[in-house]
């Protein structure tokens, strides 16, 4: 449905996108994930037509749209702050695109009613955007795009303006609506939890490049680089020397430069039963169902470990522990040093 081939973009001397190639299937939800300034929003704006790539091409539904203005691409865009027209009611906002297409009045009314029902905002049709909550505004923005039945839905940090609790609920809600409609969607976010919730596939971006493009579980379990491992979920990235001290790690290390070990993959035992690496608990924190520890090894390395509370009584700061790897197969070797 969407093909970006070798897209490059400069802003002045700033090389924002470097050879970005990505292919999104019909009906798929893809997230561009990365820190601010990594180029994810620029790539999205290129797909929408707000920016034109310096080189490379964009294909939407088998049509080359690289040089097409935004109003001639069949694309819906949900903005970071929703960009609802403040001088129009909810219904007028939703009807705006249909009017621009010179749709018949009765059709407009029917379509608007249908889509407002879809996002459960029927009773707010006559209200102005300013009087709505953040979550409601977001649904208006969504409805305004969906009513046009675009081939592709693009969303730029669409959950940013919501408070933490509502954000989670809206992410689930959004994924349900998008899947119900069956539309192809590309989202941009810096929030890994959001990416994991809403996406079929995630493209992790850094410095204008796509670092890895894969399903969420692949990204988490088999990160392609130290950056991805570190950016998605917490990770201990041990250089070869440190990793070798864990006996069980030898097999997975297999000659590579570094090893990624997720915090939950460590087991801590308070007594010295042998076989593990010794360390001292320097910080302990409750995260809810689990305890998170920082453990200092003899060589000064700090490891992060996450232990379910039902598996082990909390350990006190200052206590000495022995660390072992629970599942050596879940460790990911990385080439070179981290």
């Amino acid at each position: 449905m969407i093909e970006a081939n070798g897209v490059n973009k400069h802003f002045g001397s700033n090389h924002v996108l470097r050879d970005c190639t990505i292919s999104v299937d019909t009906g798929e939800v893809v997230t561009l994930l990365g820190a601010s300034g990594c180029g994810k929003t620029t790539l999205l704006r290129c797909i929408a037509g707000f920016e034109t790539p310096d080189s490379g091409s964009l294909v939407l539904a088998n049509q080359d749209v690289t040089r097409l203005p935004p109003n001639r691409r069949d694309v819906g865009f949900v903005f970071q702050n929703y960009a609802l027209f403040p001088h129009m009611t909810v219904a007028e906002n939703v009807a705006y695109g249909l009017k621009a297409r010179k749709t018949a009045k009765e059709t407009i009314r029917a379509e608007v009613d249908k889509v407002l029902d879809l996002v459960s905002l029927t009773e707010f049709a006559r209200r102005y955007p300013k009087s709505l909550s953040g979550g409601q505004q977001q649904r208006v923005a969504l409805a305004r795009s969906l009513v046009l039945h675009p081939k592709v839905l693009l969303m730029d940090e669409a959950f940013n303006a919501l408070d933490a609790k509502l954000r989670g609920a809206m992410q689930i809600e959004l994924r349900k609506i998008v899947k119900h409609v069956g539309i192809t969607a590309v989202c941009v976010t810096h929030d890994q939890a959001e990416a994991l919730t809403i996406s079929d596939r995630i493209a992790v971006m850094a410095e204008g490049r796509i670092q890895q493009f894969a399903a969420p579980d692949q990204i988490y379990d088999k990160p392609a680089s130290a950056f991805v491992a570190d950016f998605v979920g917490a990770a201990n990235i041990l250089p070869r020397k440190s990793a070798e001290r864990f006996k069980t790690a030898h097999k997975s290390l297999n000659g590579s430069g570094a090893l990624v070990i997720r915090p939950e993959n460590f087991a801590l035992s308070p007594s010295s039963q042998g076989g593990g690496v010794k360390g001292e608990v320097v910080f302990a924190r409750l995260t809810g169902p689990a305890m998170e520890y920082e453990i200092a090894l003899a060589d000064g390395t700090i490891l992060r470990a996450l232990v379910d509370r039902d598996r082990q009584e909390p350990l006190a700061v200052g206590s000495t522990v022995e660390i072992t790897i629970r599942n050596p197969d879940a460790c990911v070797p990385l080439p070179g040093t981290a």
Binding site: F50, F79, A83, R101
Partner: peptide, 18 residues
């Protein structure tokens, strides 16, 4: 907000209408 004009364009309005 420049996003308002971009929103209008992406909803299919012409530049003049926007």
């Amino acid at each position: 907000d420049p996003a308002l004009e971009e929103a209008s364009l992406s909803l299919g309005a012409t530049r003049k209408r926007t």
